[in-house]
C-alpha cells in the first residue's frame, strides 16, 4: 500500500512532540522527559547503507577495524558493495555495529536516538501515542519474538504508528545511543528481585504483565550486546534535534 512512496522517501523524518513517560526500567521508574525531536520514518536500508560505505571506505566490510565491528559485520553482503543474492535492497541493514550506526547517522548530519527517545516513539500503535496497556499492541510484539527471520522484509511492511513512524516493532531490533544504560544481568530472576513491582506485584494477569514481558525482552537484548557486535536481527534508524536540518553535505569521518 505505502510501498512505492515508502522507498522514495526512505530518509524522511517524523516530528515527535516531546512529553513525559514512565519507562519500564532505569531511573527508578520515575517519569522521564523527552524533548521535541525528529526520527527517521524507516530503519536505514541496505541500499542507503551502501552509499555510506562507498563514500566512507573505512566502513567497508573489508576495511573495518575489529575494534569497531566484529567478524559478522555486513555478513549478509557478498562483498564490499554487493548484497548476497537472496537479500533485499530495501530491507533494513543489519549486522552493523553501534559504532558503524553512529558513524552513519553523523554522516547524515543526524545522531542515534537515545534509549528514551526510541522507547517513547515505540510506545505508539496506529492510533495512540502510548498503547502499552493494549493487548493487541503487546501481542504483536510478543508474536514477533517468535517469528524467525523477520529481518527479511522490506521497510514499511509493518504498521505506521501514531507519529507516522514505521517498523518500530515486528522487523528488527534497533541500536540506541545509550543502549546499555540499563543493565540487566542476564540472570533474570535476580533482576526481577530488583523491582518487585514488575513481576511479583500482583497475582492478577492483565495487560500490564504482557507489557512487561514485551519490553523486558528488549532491555534484555540490549544488555546482551556490546558496541562492536554485529547481529543479524539488529539494525538502526537516526534521529535529530528539531532545530537542525538534515546535512547532506556529509561531514567527512
Amino acid at each position: 500500500m505505502i510501498m512505492a512512496s515508502g522507498f522514495s522517501q526512505a530518509s524522511e523524518m517524523a516530528e515527535i512532540e516531546g512529553g513525559t513517560y514512565i519507562p519500564l526500567y532505569g531511573n527508578d521508574s520515575l517519569p522521564v522527559s523527552v524533548e521535541n525531536f525528529k526520527i527517521d520514518k524507516y530503519p536505514v536500508t541496505n541500499k542507503e547503507y551502501l552509499k555510506f560505505v562507498v563514500e566512507n571506505p573505512k566502513w567497508k566490510k573489508s576495511e573495518v577495524k575489529a575494534l569497531f565491528a566484529d567478524g559478522r559485520y555486513l555478513n549478509h553482503w557478498k562483498n564490499d558493495t554487493e548484497l548476497k543474492s537472496d537479500e533485499l535492497e530495501n530491507a533494513p541493514v543489519t549486522n552493523v555495529s553501534w559504532f558503524a550506526a553512529r558513524a552513519y547517522c553523523k554522516w547524515k548530519g543526524k545522531r542515534l536516538p537515545t534509549l528514551d527517545e526510541w522507547e517513547y516513539v515505540a510506545m505508539a500503535d496506529k492510533e495512540t501515542a502510548d498503547a502499552r496497556k493494549k493487548d493487541g499492541y503487546n501481542e504483536f510484539i510478543l508474536s514477533w519474538y517468535e517469528r524467525p527471520k523477520s529481518f527479511h522484509q522490506e521497510i514499511g511492511s509493518t504498521y505506521e504508528n501514531y507519529w507516522g513512524v514505521y517498523d518500530m516493532h515486528g522487523m528488527v531490533w534497533e541500536w540506541t545511543a545509550d543502549f546499555n544504560s540499563v543493565i540487566i544481568s542476564g540472570e533474570t530472576r535476580r533482576d526481577e528481585n530488583q523491582d518487585n513491582n514488575l513481576f511479583c506485584g500482583s497475582a492478577a494477569i492483565g495487560s500490564s504483565d504482557l507489557m512487561n514481558y514485551a519490553a523486558f525482552m528488549r532491555y534484555a537484548f540490549r544488555s546482551s550486546v556490546k558496541g562492536n557486535y554485529s547481529i543479524r536481527n539488529l539494525g538502526f534508524r537516526c534521529a535529530q534535534d528539531t532545530n537542525e536540518e538534515e546535512n547532506s553535505a556529509n561531514e567527512a569521518l
Partner: peptide
C-alpha cells in the same frame, strides 16, 4: 554457584 551458570552464560545472537 549463583544462578547455576546463568549469569556467566548470557550470550547475544551470533556470539
Amino acid at each position: 554457584g549463583p544462578g547455576g551458570g546463568a549469569e556467566s552464560s548470557f550470550v547475544a545472537p551470533g556470539h
